[in-house]
């Protein structure tokens, strides 16, 4: 039986080859055939997830809530020391110096990344900006979000922090972070589904030590972080409780 694996679409495109190499490494480590299926957008991936096509998902915190609580997935590992944080940025010449300087009817540009959108909308609450008061437009990538801000077609842009840091210097020079989140408790997590649950222990053990192995170290670094860390069920349940409170508006 071939198992199916997918990755939350919010990773930096530079790491795309890294995920294919990782999948090859993982197949050897657990001696099972795994097919990696990547998506360009959250909506089509979410549809495939709802059809229960996947056995292994590197999920953003938003999707992790559904996969764990409704689909019987269990957490395996997460990136060591890497929390998901978001940045609300403006054009470098924007008169806004802090969130409370923003008007309620600002033009917001964002990707359809649900975590980033949620975190950034929370950060705008002190200015009374809501989904109803603002004009929100969506772009496929963070580079397009940045370009729209630079062209003055939007007042505020939402970014995943690590993706903002990966923007070119030329682009970042035209922008200014207005506020960045310091939540520290929300992160992506690799989950296994019911059909692959019998392999959870070996996957967890293999990934938790791969950074200490000569070949494995390079493979994990090509995903944009240094190491995987084993995650306990309760740790993920806590993160999901946290997500529940944030989504509960």
């Amino acid at each position: 039986m071939t198992y199916n694996f997918t990755v939350s679409p919010d990773f930096n495109p530079d790491y795309l080859p890294g995920w294919f190499i990782f999948n090859t490494w993982l197949q050897k480590a657990i001696d099972e055939p795994i097919h990696l299926d990547l998506y360009n957008d959250f909506e089509s991936q979410r549809k495939a997830i709802s059809e229960e096509r996947f056995d292994l998902v590197y999920a953003n915190p938003y999707d992790a809530t559904v996969l764990v609580r409704e689909k019987g997935f269990v957490p395996v590992v997460c990136p060591m020391g890497a929390a998901d944080e978001a940045i609300v940025a403006v054009h470098r010449d924007s008169p806004a110096k802090q969130v409370e300087d923003l008007n309620t009817d600002m033009r917001i540009v964002t990707t359809d990344d649900p975590d980033v959108k949620m975190m950034c909308m929370i950060m705008l609450e002190p200015a009374d900006i809501t989904r109803e008061s603002a004009k929100i437009s969506y772009r496929d990538t963070y580079v397009l979000v940045a370009k729209e801000l630079i062209r003055g077609e939007a007042d505020i842009g939402f970014f995943l922090e690590e993706t903002y840091e990966d923007l070119s210097n030329v682009i970042r020079q035209e922008l200014r972070p207005l506020v960045h989140s310091q939540i520290q408790l929300i992160h992506h997590v690799l989950l296994v589904g019911p059909r692959l649950a019998h392999k959870k222990e070996i996957i967890q053990q293999s990934l938790a030590r791969m950074h200490a192995e000569e070949k494995g170290k390079g493979v994990v670094e090509n995903l944009g972080f240094d190491a995987w860390k084993a995650v306990e069920q309760e740790e993920t349940e806590f993160m999901i409780d946290l997500m529940d409170t944030l989504m509960a508006n």
Binding site: E125, P126, T245
Partner: peptide
């Protein structure tokens, strides 16, 4: 119970 608290606006 989990409690999460965040900054409200002055008007609220």
């Amino acid at each position: 119970y989990t409690s999460v608290r965040r900054k409200p606006s002055r008007s609220r």
